[in-house]
Amino acid sequence: MAATARLAARARPLARPNPGVAALVVQHGRVIARGWTQAGGRPHAEAMGLAGLAPAALAEATLYVTLEPCAHESARGPSCADLILAARPARVVIGQLDPDPRTSGAGIARLQTAGIETRLLDDPASAASLVGFLTRQRAGRPWVTLKLAISLDGCIALADGTSQWITGETARAHVHAQRARHDAILVGGGTWRADAPRLDVRLPGLETRSPQRVVLTRGAAPDGVTAISSPEAIAGLDSVLHLYVEGGAETAAAFLAADLVDELHLYTAPILIGDGRRSLGALGLASLADAHGRWHLHERRQLGSDQFTAYLRSRNS
């Protein structure tokens, strides 16, 4: 199942507005087919994985899929539960229950009623691969990642606002790769007016993956850009499952104060700025105790001379 979840990364973000699901077909310990949700959301992962397999190959095979097969009818194609029933694999292992009320539990029930051995796991790797979809379904908003590029002393720019470049080329390339994995990218109105950032992907071969651009402002939206007036308004960003927030300091603080940041990406450069612009504005904390227990380390890696650290929000605090 962990391998299936890793495969799902190929579907992100092209599968939107559908979740990026992956499927593996395994026979006698050997992977004989695989699939993931295609661009625009169709075909689904199960359809890709089962396509072209003979019934004899499936009779002793297990289908692993990260999300419960859909059970509702669609004008865009048959339900995955129907496809699986027609293919008749020996068993189906599912990483996560689908929270969509059109399917939730119904896909599993149909497979079990038809006599196909079906097992539902609460698989963390599958949940992580589906985190944008699950957050949209359960919280009514996209999964939010906040990115900050800072000096060792916590600055994002010189006192005059100069910020190009805090980090080196390797770290900046990593940021562009992160942009390519997100549906939309957001900056504050001050950053937009001061820097006119392109907010695109400039990695060779990935230029077409540039995300939708969003500005946090009470003013009018620039051409080709979506404007929202508050962090909470991200709920209205249609088809956005993963939102990448790049700043500046007041915008970052606004999202943190609203407790809307799920993942924090810090790019720390080995430089000292001193009297520079701080990375965050006021967060509204009443005591140091309120700051503890909110974040846990998820990933750390070296990017040239810079260090990348990712933290996940601990939602039990």
Rank of each mutant, 00 (worst) to 15 (best):
R16E: 07
L97D: 15
L58H: 09
L83Y: 03
A75W: 09
V21D: 04
V65T: 14
R91P: 11
A51Y: 10
L50K: 06
A54F: 04
A81L: 08
L97Q: 14
P55N: 02
P19Y: 10
G52C: 09
A51D: 14
A71W: 03
G20S: 12
Y64K: 00
A81C: 05
L58R: 06
R34L: 08
M48K: 14
A90C: 03
D82A: 06
R119D: 15
R88D: 05
V21C: 03
P55K: 00
L58T: 10
A71Y: 02
A81M: 08
A86T: 08
E60K: 13
C80L: 15
P43W: 05
R34A: 13
A86R: 04
A114P: 02
Q96F: 05
V21A: 02
P99C: 12
P43E: 12
I108E: 08
P69N: 06
G29A: 00
V26G: 00
G115Q: 03
V92G: 00
C80H: 15
V93K: 03
A87G: 12
A59V: 08
I84L: 11
L63F: 07
R42W: 14
A33Y: 00
A90S: 11
A90T: 10
L53A: 03
V93Q: 05
T103R: 00
D122I: 10
L58C: 09
A33P: 00
A81K: 00
V65F: 01
R76H: 12
L50G: 04
T66Y: 04
L120K: 06
Q96S: 12
A51N: 13
L83A: 04
P55T: 06
S104V: 12
L85Y: 06
G35M: 04
L120E: 10
G20E: 09
S79M: 03
A33V: 00
Q38C: 11
Q27W: 10
R102H: 06
L63E: 08
G20F: 06
G52N: 00
S74N: 05
A71I: 09
I94K: 02
A87V: 10
V21N: 03
P17G: 01
L120I: 08
D98G: 13
L58A: 06
R34M: 11
L67S: 12
P101V: 13
A51E: 14
S74E: 04
P19S: 09
P17C: 07
R102K: 02
G35S: 04
I32V: 14
D100R: 15
V31K: 01
A45N: 05
T62Y: 08
Q38P: 03
R42C: 13
G49W: 06
V21Q: 00
T62Q: 13
E46Q: 15
V65A: 08
